[in-house]
């Protein structure tokens, strides 16, 4: 599904190298988790995948279902089926949540040569999915993320993901700032989308989210590289011992 090969990334504006050769393959139907200390480059990876400005890829390649991702505009990547749940969802005063979502959905459908979804159908689907995430109708009417609590913003990301049904979902610290109940809602939202045709890359700093979204593979990222890869037990190791031991071990190996 998603193949990242030897990805090197530096900042466009300064000579700061952030990703130093990332190799990662996410197969369809699988959930991969990336864990790692703050500043290790997890969000940068997510942004580079989705096409944000400000980064320069100096080496390596990324393909999604065989298509070269790095040459594409962000909207083309979205149309291809890539979705990023933002670590910091953006507020857009003056644009209603419903308008935002409908424009998004129909833009993607149009890019794929599909017919736009009718207003009535859209409303029905949106309301049903919002209800599952306990997002009330009032919130849908408000401008995008404006006045939302941290948890509401994260649930709104998952709602967007549920609406767009992307092939490849990248979740960047969707668990941060969530209480236990909100975390369960988010996890349920993700689990509901798990199927054989869809890949997940779940970025998290803590292990807690992975109690609810059981990963197939866990990667540890440090200083712009994947330093260790293992099964779900790796997440538990991080939980009990912290990063220091794993990093020391990986450093010794390297």
């Amino acid at each position: 599904m998603l193949e990242i090969k030897n990805l090197h990334v530096k900042l466009e504006e300064e000579d700061k190298v952030i990703l130093k050769g990332v190799d990662l393959t996410v197969e369809a139907g699988k959930v991969h988790a990336i864990m790692g200390p703050n500043g290790s480059g997890k969000s940068t990876l997510a942004y580079v995948l989705s096409g944000r400005d400000g980064y320069q890829v100096t080496e390596g390649s990324v393909t999604l279902e065989g298509e070269e991702l790095l040459e594409m505009e962000p909207e083309e990547r979205a149309a291809l089926g890539l979705f990023l749940a933002f670590q910091y969802p953006v507020e857009i005063p003056g644009v209603g949540n419903m308008t935002f979502m409908r424009t998004s959905l129909n833009s993607i459908r149009k890019a794929r040569g599909q017919e736009e979804m009718s207003s009535a159908e859209f409303l029905k689907v949106m309301r049903a999915k919002a209800k599952e995430l306990k997002i009330d109708a009032e919130m849908l009417k408000r401008p995008v993320n404006v006045g939302f609590s941290g948890g509401e913003k994260k649930r709104n990301e998952i709602l967007q993901m549920a609406m767009l049904e992307p092939k490849m979902c990248v979740l960047d610290e969707t668990d941060s700032g969530l209480d236990v109940d909100a975390m369960r809602l988010v996890a349920d939202g993700v689990n509901a989308l798990r199927d054989a045709g869809r890949g997940f890359l779940v970025i998290t700093h803590y292990q807690r989210l992975l109690d609810h979204i059981k990963p197939d593979v866990v990667h540890i990222m440090a200083d712009g590289r994947i330093v260790k890869t293992g099964g779900p037990e790796l997440a538990l190791e991080v939980e009990t011992n912290g990063y220091t031991e794993i990093l020391a071990e990986a450093g010794a190996a390297a």
């Binding site: 989705s50 096409g51 944000r52 400005d53 505009e73 962000p74 909207e75 990547r77 979205a78 149309a79 990023l84 933002f86 969802p89 953006v90 507020e91 857009i92 935002f100 424009t103 998004s104 959905l105 833009s107 993607i108 890019a111 967007q160 767009l164």
Partner: peptide
């Protein structure tokens, strides 16, 4: 720029 990117990441052309 952040708002513009957010919209584009959701598939809305620039």
């Amino acid at each position: 720029a952040d708002q513009l990117f957010y919209l584009r990441a959701r598939g809305v052309p620039e």
